[in-house]
Design a protein around this nucleic acid. Sequence first.
DNA 1: CTGAATCCTTCAGGATACTG
DNA 2: CAGTATCCTGAAGGATTCAG
Lengths: 123, 123
Amino acid sequence: MSEFKSDQYGPCTVTIKHGCPIELAMHIMGGKWKGIILSLLSKSPMYYNAIRREIPGITQRILTLQLRDMEKDGLVAREETNDSPKRVLYYLTDLGENFVPILKSLKQWGNIYIDKQEEGLKK
Amino acid sequence: MSEFKSDQYGPCTVTIKHGCPIELAMHIMGGKWKGIILSLLSKSPMYYNAIRREIPGITQRILTLQLRDMEKDGLVAREETNDSPKRVLYYLTDLGENFVPILKSLKQWGNIYIDKQEEGLKK
DNA sequence: CTGAATCCTTCAGGATACTG
DNA sequence: CAGTATCCTGAAGGATTCAG
């Protein structure tokens, strides 16, 4: 009766091991830096190094991994230039764009949470 | 210039180690079962065992841990009865309710994702 | 009925160095 | 510039058993 029965997507033996679309979305976007990356790219396409500069604290390896995940999941796309040394431009796909509003909601909710915590301190 | 500078909440040395409200929200709600729990409780308050029955595959330990997290984070509240054996009722707080719409968005987005995957298969 | 106590596994994320 | 290649760590989740 619940909408959250697990493993109920019929013959769909795709890459999907999550029965519930919510779990799926959380898993796809749950990477530590994916929210920030998506937010950055929502403003404009960016080259690899530009992204890296905007996220101090991330290593090359991790940035590449997160971008690869997001590419595989169809959130971002990449485009290599013919320059030398070559550069790689990343930009959001439609699916990626679709997530941006959710990101804004999450941000609002996060701020509410922070406010409540600060209230709790003053009392 | 970015809205996502990390560790920029001034003297706020609370439980908050996330500079960005988005990261914060993802971290709080990122627990493997928290989405499902929240969804269940959004329909009505529930006793511990009822929740457990609705989520086959979760162990007692994990369910308790997730509920404790959510209680600590102010998403749910608990109320013990005086029965014997005692029962514990869980229900959403305002903060928890505030997250429900986001859950719906995540669900929609997840379904879009699934549809796109299935398209890709038919071609 | 609702948990606490132990112990164990997995894997995302990170540090560092190297490359076309 | 945009990555690989190794190696390592911690924390989340899980299996199982015991308790008020």
